[in-house]
């Protein structure tokens, strides 16, 4: 394939990665920002979202759109509640001590993963997209006859993939509105800025924490529900989203939602675009080292203020 169309295809793929990554990472960033804890089990909530989507859509049957709509509503709700109860049962009792929380969430990671293996099984399970049309994309070329439009071989995308980008953008917009325009958002931001002061003002900090933890997990689950018709539900699928979300949250500046979204775009797009220039595994190595170097030379992240 020619260079131009190749780049465009890689960018499109990168945008999808970025969209899902933004949702997932914002969830992680939220828990970090408000609660100051690192949730290592975040990727497992992502996985549970995908598994729930599979379960819901196969239970409902009929046209895949019904299952999809039900999954979009139910899966984040269920996973959110599950996470909130994990917060209530475990994290609260640790008093949100950062290191103990990491240990406990690594524990949760294994428990959830093995639980999924027992309940869901080791196979990757597909979920049918609500709609899917192949869309051939045009490319422009400057020839002797002037500007010409043609359809290069292989340059195409899929209507559902475009929908993912759109839906993720809408959801992020919604989240931003919640955080800036509603009372819940205000309370959460207040807790983020000063926990003690929030407590003094009568904010039920413990409940806000459970809510935040639940919301963070729900966002990861939502990201998974959106991507699972393109990929599959699989019990070990939480690993990569966790790693990438981690990176995005740090690069974006810990706890900064805007920074997180920008970083997700950067990481997602570069993952796509670097693959144009290097052999796949080398591209992964370069992308990984680039991230490490960004952190080394800008430990506070690209867009945020440091906390340590």
């Amino acid at each position: 394939m020619e260079f131009g169309p190749h780049l465009m295809l890689a960018a499109l793929e990168g945008a999808i990665t970025a969209a899902i990554l933004a949702l997932t990472a914002v969830g992680l960033s939220l828990t970090f920002g408000v609660m100051r804890v690192v949730n290592v089990a975040h990727g497992e909530f992502f996985m549970l979202g995908a598994v729930a989507a599979w379960f819901i859509s196969t239970t409902i049957g009929g046209h895949p759109a019904w299952g999809f709509i039900a999954a979009v509503v139910l899966a984040p709700l269920i996973i959110g509640l599950l996470a909130a109860s994990a917060d209530w049962l475990v994290l609260k009792r640790l008093d949100y001590d950062p290191e103990r929380t990491i240990v406990a969430t690594i524990g949760l990671l294994y428990i959830i993963q093995q639980g999924a293996l027992i309940g869901f099984g080791p196979n990757a399970q597909p979920v049918e997209p609500p709609f899917s049309h192949r869309i051939a994309l045009p490319w422009f070329e400057w020839t002797e006859a002037g500007f010409e439009m043609y359809y290069p071989w292989g340059l195409s995308t899929n209507s559902y993939k475009l929908f993912i980008i759109f839906a993720a953008a809408m959801l992020l917009l919604g989240l931003w509105l919640i955080m800036t325009r509603t009372k819940v958002g205000l309370v959460m931001r207040a807790t983020q800025q000063d926990r003690d002061m929030a407590t003094a003002f009568g904010i039920p900090v413990e409940r806000i924490y459970a809510l935040t933890f639940g919301l963070g997990a729900a966002l990861a689950a939502l990201g998974a529900v959106l991507i699972v018709p393109v990929q599959q539900a699989y019990y070990l699928m939480g690993h990569d989203p966790l790693l990438l979300s981690f990176i995005v949250v740090i690069i974006g500046g810990l706890g900064s939602l805007r920074g997180t979204v920008l970083a997700a775009l950067l990481i997602g797009m570069s993952d796509g675009i670097i693959s144009v220039f290097f052999s796949p595994t080398l591209a992964k190595i370069i992308a990984t080292l680039l991230v490490a170097m960004v952190l080394v030379f800008r430990p506070q992240g690209l867009f945020g203020k440091g906390v340590h």
Partner: peptide, 23 residues
Amino acid sequence: LALRTSGVAFMIVTLMFAQAGYL
């Protein structure tokens, strides 16, 4: 390289280096 960072960033940087090593 990694000691230029601390806390969570140190965790991530070491994780990234290890991932690059594995790859």
